[in-house]
Design a protein around this nucleic acid. Structure first.
Length: 279
DNA sequence: CCTTGAACCTGCGGGC
DNA sequence: TGCCCGCAGGTTCAAG
């Protein structure tokens, strides 16, 4: 399901039903996802109060009163839903958290690329996933000079570079294409050549796209829902993603001449762009 | 070091 | 209808 806007949407939805409440029980319905679930998961979580919900990159952080953080990553197909307790489990429901207050939090993930960790508060950087992470795209740490510096000398395509979580976190396959279109930069451009005003434009575009998507409750393609089941609707605002052959919204369009939006494959992932508007 | 490609897993839609 | 193929919002690991 998730890039940053979808994960942010999930966090905001979880906050009112989890913060200040106790996780009374947890049903663990398989051994793990991409990695085994933490061995001490039940012992460390049951009967413990949730202090706050936060997000870092595409990770959901559930801060517990016992100075540990329950960390959830949704992979490609992970979904979190709030349901009434008692709840009848459905296929691919892997973790069910029972909250005091009569609700359950269900983690469903058909492809099982997700991950669940339990880390001591303040020691998250010991985990390799968090170790070398880039800045949050909506923070001041992510700016033109920073991006240019981090891209300097990189010979990979800019599309691949902005999806690298060590460059900046949270940008995935959809929003990478959307941001590059907004910035007028070809996804094929060499990353090292993005500097100066061009880097500034890309930073502004990434910010703008993510912010708009958050306001829309994320994008619903297949799996993503808000935690109450509501659909996100940013997919209706896609300019290029999954629109191969359609007219580019910026070209006054003789589609025969422009050939419309192109799909190419980079690093095994689809990219979408307009060759006329993006250089 | 850096870059590329495959692997992990299930489900869905399209073409035959 | 059924089957095979390609494709899907991410991350990690091995090999060049």
């Amino acid at each position: 399901m998730p890039e940053l806007p979808e994960v942010e949407t999930v966090c905001r939805g979880l906050d009112p039903v989890m913060t200040g409440r106790v996780i009374t029980a947890i049903d663990v319905r398989r051994e793990g996802l991409r990695k085994p679930f933490p061995a001490n998961l039940k012992v460390m979580v049951e009967g413990v109060k949730v202090l706050r919900i936060a997000r870092r990159a595409k990770y959901i952080l559930i801060h517990l009163e016992n100075a540990h953080v329950l960390v959830i990553h949704l992979g490609m197909s992970g979904r979190v839903q709030i349901e009434a307790d008692p709840y009848e489990p459905k296929p691919h429901d892997h973790l069910i958290l029972h909250m005091d207050g009569g609700r359950v939090i269900v983690l469903n993930d058909p492809r099982r690329f997700g991950i669940v960790l339990l880390l001591p508060e303040g020691q998250m950087n010991d985990d390799p996933a968090f170790q070398a992470m880039g800045p949050e795209p909506l923070s001041n740490a992510f700016n033109g000079p920073f991006l240019a510096a981090r891209l300097k000398g990189k010979k990979i395509a800019i599309k691949t570079a902005i999806m690298d979580q060590q460059v900046v976190v949270g940008v995935g396959n959809i929003y990478a294409s959307e941001a590059l279109f907004m910035a007028g930069i070809s996804p094929k451009r060499m990353a090292g050549s993005v500097a100066g005003e061009r880097a500034e434009r890309l930073v502004r575009a990434i910010r703008a796209v993510l912010e708009k998507a958050i306001l829309a409750g994320g994008s619903t393609l297949r799996d993503h829902r808000q935690v109450d089941g509501t659909l996100g609707y940013f997919q209706h605002h896609f300019t290029v993603y999954d629109r191969a052959g359609q007219p580019c919204p910026g070209c006054d369009c003789d589609i025969i001449k422009t050939k419309g939006i192109q799909r190419i494959v980079q690093g095994g992932r689809s990219s979408f762009y307009c060759p006329r508007k993006q250089k």
